[in-house]
């Protein structure tokens, strides 16, 4: 075993011990009788105002009439069963749906008051401000350094590239693990490191919002814990929208939760996603107002 591998193993053992202490116990417990006093949602500047958004693929509704708003420095979790359009909606927020030629978006996605689907908006500019991390870690088949440097170079960012790379890796909580092997191929990293690299890569272009599409679904609990800690840190400077199937994760990290459900049309052929409840996370998980949310978060369905 190389020194490096031994070091990584040690790190993982430490993290395991930490995880055993902190991150235990079920996060979801219903408050049957009314629930405790809850601080109201803090009013901050609105980042996204999603207004009656309907997305169709080849004319078939994937999600319909989505309405909610996302504030600055908040983590918003999108939860719900598979195929309910969480990712579809997430991809509307930085116009990644443009890559699917059959997708059409109706309604408005206001970003600081500006409609992202307005006629003068360039999707490339949108994606510079609204970064995205995907379900499966997708590092480029290049060195760790070049993975980070790609975005700033493409955007023509000024400044010392070494500094930009170091800062991004530090904010991605990866610097200490990789600072001695920046020239090595990113495919040699562990899955959790690769995902943090993807997050760091996204931070390097200094976005305003980070969208995460099930960022931990391919990772083990320790890597997941690291990424969740990272998200809580990043919240200080960014707004984060995360799609997750892991309800404990949503309960642990998010401030607001949107619960999506699937509706079948009359002939039961097409499935359309819809938001049934959007509220503060502890309310959604402890005292949901819709019975469908309750059934889902308590594990009765889904």
């Amino acid at each position: 075993m190389t020194d490096e591998a031994r070091q990584r193993e040690q790190l993982e053992r430490d993290a395991m011990a930490q995880a055993a202490q902190g991150r235990s116990g079920p996060a979801i417990r219903l408050e049957r009788d009314g629930g405790a006093e809850r601080a109201p949602r803090e009013v901050r500047e609105t980042v996204f105002e999603i207004d009656k958004v309907t997305v169709r693929y080849s004319g078939v509704q994937a999600v319909r009439d989505i309405e909610f708003s996302i504030q600055e420095n908040e983590i918003v979790a999108l939860i719900g069963p598979s195929g309910c359009g969480k990712s579809t909606l997430l991809r509307c927020l930085n116009r990644m749906n443009d890559l699917i030629s059959t997708a059409t978006v109706e309604g408005k996605v206001l970003y600081h008051g500006e409609d992202l689907y307005g006629p003068k908006v360039d999707p490339v500019q949108v994606r510079k401000l609204i970064g995205m991390v995907f379900q499966k870690p997708n590092p480029f088949p290049k060195s760790i350094y070049d993975n980070i440097a790609f975005g700033p170079r493409a955007l023509g960012m000024k400044g010392d590239m070494d500094e930009i790379v170091e800062r991004a890796l530090q904010r991605g909580a990866l610097w200490d693990e990789v600072k001695d092997r920046l020239g090595q191929n990113a495919f040699g990293m562990s899955g959790g490191q690769q995902q943090r690299l993807c997050i760091a890569r996204c931070l390097a272009i200094e976005p305003d919002v980070i969208l995460m599409d099930e960022p931990c679904s391919a990772l083990d609990p320790i890597s997941t814990g690291k990424i969740e800690d990272l998200m809580l840190e990043l919240k200080e400077n960014y707004s984060i929208v995360i799609v997750t199937h892991n309800m404990q994760q949503a309960a642990r990290v998010s401030d607001m939760t949107a619960f999506f459900t699937v509706e079948l049309d009359e002939d039961e052929k097409h499935r359309t996603g819809h938001v049934v409840e959007y509220d503060q996370t502890d309310k959604v998980f402890t005292n949901p107002s819709d019975p469908r949310t309750e059934a889902y978060v308590t594990g009765k369905v889904g």
């Binding site: 930085n94 990644m96 890559l99 490339v124 500019q125 994606r127 510079k128 401000l129 970064g131 995205m132 995907f134 499966k136 997708n138 590092p139 480029f140 088949p141 290049k142 790609f150 975005g151 170079r153 493409a154 955007l155 993807c198 890569r201 996204c202 272009i205």
Partner: peptide, 27 residues
């Protein structure tokens, strides 16, 4: 070349040509 590589590059605000030139073609 997997679509995830293209998505990754585009999500960073790269243009289509930058994505092809810097990621797809080298691979």
């Amino acid at each position: 070349v997997p679509p995830s590589i293209r998505e990754g590059a585009l999500a960073l605000g790269a243009t289509e040509w930058q994505t092809i030139r810097r990621q797809v073609l080298p691979a």
